[in-house]
Design a protein around this nucleic acid. Sequence first.
DNA 1: CTTGATTCCGAAAGCGCTTTCGGTTTAGCG
DNA 2: CGCTAAACCGAAAGCGCTTTCGGAATCAAG
Lengths: 340, 340
Amino acid sequence: MQRVSLKFLAKELGVTEGTVSRALNDYPDISKATRKRVLEVAEKFNYKANQTARRLATGVAEAVAYLMPPNTNTIAEPFVSQLLEGIGASLAKRGWDLLVVQASSAETEVETVEKLSTSGRVSGVVISRPYKNDHRIALLKKYNMPFIVHGRSLQSDDYAWFDVDSEQAFQDAVTHLASLGHQRIGFIGAPLDYNFGQMRLDGYKKGLLANGLGFDDAIVEIAEMTDEASEAAALNFLQSSPAPTAILCATDTQAIGALAAVRSMGLIPGQDMSIMGYDGLDFGKHTNPPLTTMAQPQSNSGREICDMLLAIIDGGNPVDYQELRRAKLVRRMSDGPVRP
Amino acid sequence: MQRVSLKFLAKELGVTEGTVSRALNDYPDISKATRKRVLEVAEKFNYKANQTARRLATGVAEAVAYLMPPNTNTIAEPFVSQLLEGIGASLAKRGWDLLVVQASSAETEVETVEKLSTSGRVSGVVISRPYKNDHRIALLKKYNMPFIVHGRSLQSDDYAWFDVDSEQAFQDAVTHLASLGHQRIGFIGAPLDYNFGQMRLDGYKKGLLANGLGFDDAIVEIAEMTDEASEAAALNFLQSSPAPTAILCATDTQAIGALAAVRSMGLIPGQDMSIMGYDGLDFGKHTNPPLTTMAQPQSNSGREICDMLLAIIDGGNPVDYQELRRAKLVRRMSDGPVRP
DNA sequence: CTTGATTCCGAAAGCGCTTTCGGTTTAGCG
DNA sequence: CGCTAAACCGAAAGCGCTTTCGGAATCAAG
């Protein structure tokens, strides 16, 4: 099969390669007639430009990388594929590529980012789940690589990000639980090296304060974001005394573990013990009982995130692209008034 | 920031670009001494080759594309991100890139594949969820693009694939249900334009036959692969008469919908009505009740799939890379003996 | 007609790397 | 020492495209 290149088309048309290129790329200094001719012949031979060559010539990578967070294979974490779909849709408008990059471990993460920044294969990067002090962010800034963060690190005023205000959300959650009469609310948190882990804990604390409730670290535990780890933590709470009457979890996955713990004690979640999660994952509808949670806005965030990134690549000021969304309570069956 | 290129290193070292390239790429005709010098200086300046240029020069894309199936955002479908992780891990060994490509619709799918095959940006492709007669496969063959299919189309003897024998699995599932005394087993299937939809239906039929049970299309329905659609289908079965005593579903997601239907009728899944799914998704542990299912082998299939693809890219014969795995029953609580 | 401005296209350089070819050095050996 | 073979590296072409520069052709205006 004859590879159809620019040169081939040029020969076919009896013009020069430059002319063909100009016609194909809508340059102004080309006559209507030749453009039409070129387009026709290109169509006829099903010409598709060699992207590699084009990239080398123009110097623009026409690609964006998504840095996969490690260990997403916890129970049912569809957020990655949803995000990718959104990013892909945004990129499709320009015909750009989506690269998925992952670091095998936390140590190699930095090296991965470095390679990404210097090897010139992408025009921008989106990263998820930032740490409090995220080296990746520092590197991206250092190398002047356009990027956007899905989430926020501790110091977040000088780059672009898209986040949900989980601190507010956890404050709201505590208030909701307090309004149901709960005075002793446990908390199962996410690792604090993730900034969202810290923010959710802070929100929990603020919520306690706002509702006149005391903080007791006997019923606060930081756990891995798996159902098993959370189940163990919840079990501890349940066997302590005084036991909490409600448990707030940093993620839906953890909440599901807590649900299991409550049931395993012969108690009924939502009646004997209230459980709340955060994320708003769809399958929370199908847990036993259905999970009450603080839901992130459903919208196609991947698309929005990538649109913002593209705007920055086009020269926009990163600081102008900071979006904070609000989570909202979706009540299902795992919460209820405190038992008398 | 001075971009460090080959030319830069060459000047720095007082040698020619070719020499630096040879040193960096472990060519034989280079002295130990200069190689060492080059490596040191490259390290010092943190040189990373421009991948685009290297690709153009070598003609190998050093990248593989994963074609995302459309509409994966059904409830909890973590399989995409798991697959991507595996593929990424396999690619990492060579330092190749993973491109994620999606078609906005079924029509553009063909065009997407065509562009992928001719634009020279990837060395291979993996596709998921083939249709019975999949145009993408035909195109990939036509363009001689190395590829592997996650699943199988109807005619699958002349290309590489990795699949789980779901026909066998559904036969096994029926046998299991029959061994519990069920004589009337309903089936909620997946769309038949997907070949796995057909194979699962075939397996169900074979299972009936093998167990001396009759086929009744009143309790067979093809539904979209969502919890809602399946719930509606299950509701129909439950209100028919005679109603089935068990329902087998083509996917776990559908089984979860069926669970909801059963509960909504005031019945207890696993006691009044047996429900079985297929996939073995982790969160089946947490449904109400926990879901009995035919589980696909847990192993990191993304990695295996990509390893196979790489072998083909290296010149292997696609036909030598066909893997059929077997699903196994994992019993949880949604099945049980038929009621007297 | 002549002139200046336009319009259009050919020629050619260049993007950053790889790789062939050939020439110079050095080593090996009688 | 002289000769051949091997080891090493410089020169240069080339991957397929973009883009600048300038020249030829066309046009409008004087």
